[in-house]
């Protein structure tokens, strides 16, 4: 039976997913072994049950991220924090340094102070998710099994980790393969 793989995109720049696509021909090997059941690159609306592994890109920035992450945790055997934003909260978390209440000030700068047209705060209940007070790395919210640092993690690093997982050994990256940034 094929491994049920999911990838998800939270608060990140999509660079990790781009790097994933850089796996090139390994993607073809991968396609034989895994079934991609949920991902920004496939059109599935609801995160499915019984997922074997999920690569999580991005930090947890808003209520939607938070809700989906909990759902993912419940429905997935193995979570991988995929890239620095997931592992450390990275660039999205720079706003945390501004102190509490920073969600408002970030929105103020982005949508009002620097707006060229139509300055207003995006607000639509049920559509625009409210920002969390503090941006969090994934493992501060739920238990995470494996970590794949890098901004973005280079394709060979992704290949090493996914390869080890598919080979049934405990994934272990070492040395410079764990470099942040």
């Amino acid at each position: 039976m094929k491994v049920r793989l999911a990838t998800v995109w939270f608060g990140g720049c999509a660079g990790c997913h781009m790097s994933f696509l850089d796996l090139d021909e390994f993607l073809i090997d991968l396609a034989e072994k895994v079934e991609l059941v949920y991902s920004p690159v496939v059109d599935v609306k609801e995160y499915p049950e019984d997922v074997d592994v999920c690569l999580i890109e991005g930090a947890i920035c808003n209520e939607d991220n938070l809700e989906l992450l909990h759902k993912i945790r419940q429905r997935t055997k193995v979570l991988v924090s995929f890239g620095d934003c997931a592992v450390t909260a990275n660039v999205p978390a720079i706003r945390n340094q501004l102190g509490l209440g920073n969600a408002e000030s970030v929105l103020q700068v982005a949508y009002i102070d620097n707006a060229q047209h139509n300055p207003c705060l995006p607000k639509e209940d049920g559509i625009v998710p409210p920002l969390l007070k503090k941006v969090l790395p994934v493992h501060e919210v739920v238990n995470v099994e494996h970590f794949l640092p890098g901004c973005p993690p280079p394709a060979d690093r992704i290949k090493a980790l996914v390869g080890q997982m598919l080979a049934g050994v405990e994934p272990k990256l070492e040395g410079a393969q764990l470099k942040f940034g």
């Binding site: 990256l173 070492e174 040395g175 942040f180």
Partner: peptide, 26 residues
């Protein structure tokens, strides 16, 4: 606040290399 991705020392930092050499993945 260590945001290696946007840091001047990224790739040339003793803290960063110590961390990966000691197996710090998170």
């Amino acid at each position: 606040n260590h945001v290696c991705a946007v840091c001047v020392a990224n790739g040339h930092c003793e803290l960063q290399s110590l961390a990966y050499n000691q197996g710090m993945d998170h």
